[in-house]
């Protein structure tokens, strides 16, 4: 076991910095998703803002779907929920 020799580390640092940039962008990025509402659909549905980490979490149980180019919540975020299964 061990760390790579110093002469091998230039590619590592490039990839490592790219990973950090991706992580920082992901940490601060937010997404607009259409709120799940009951009743009639409107042209201007209520939107809510979620972080990318929330979007990752939603991806684990299809909590958000892409409907005609819009991200749409499939559940009411204001209500408490337990662990959910992914329908795929």
């Amino acid at each position: 076991m061990g760390w790579a020799p110093r002469r091998d580390r230039s590619y590592f640092w490039t990839a490592f910095l790219a990973a950090l940039v991706f992580l920082v962008i992901g940490l601060f990025r937010t997404h607009q998703v259409v709120k799940k509402t009951r009743g009639r659909r409107s042209l201007h549905p209520p939107m809510e803002t979620i972080t990318e980490i929330q979007l990752v979490e939603d991806a684990t149980f299809a909590g958000v779907r892409n409907l005609h180019g819009r991200l749409v919540s499939t559940y009411d975020r204001s209500k408490p929920r337990g662990k959910r299964l992914c329908p795929t």
Binding site: A19, G26, R29, A59, V64, T88
Partner: peptide
């Protein structure tokens, strides 16, 4: 989260998975 499941959903959302890819890339480079 499974990175593959997350990438599949993000591909479907047409959203670049910065956070998920960053996590995998970070752990992979280390």
């Amino acid at each position: 989260a499974c990175p593959i499941g997350v990438f599949i959903h993000f591909s479907g959302y047409h959203v670049f998975p910065f956070f998920a890819l960053g996590t995998v890339l970070l752990l992979g480079t280390l």
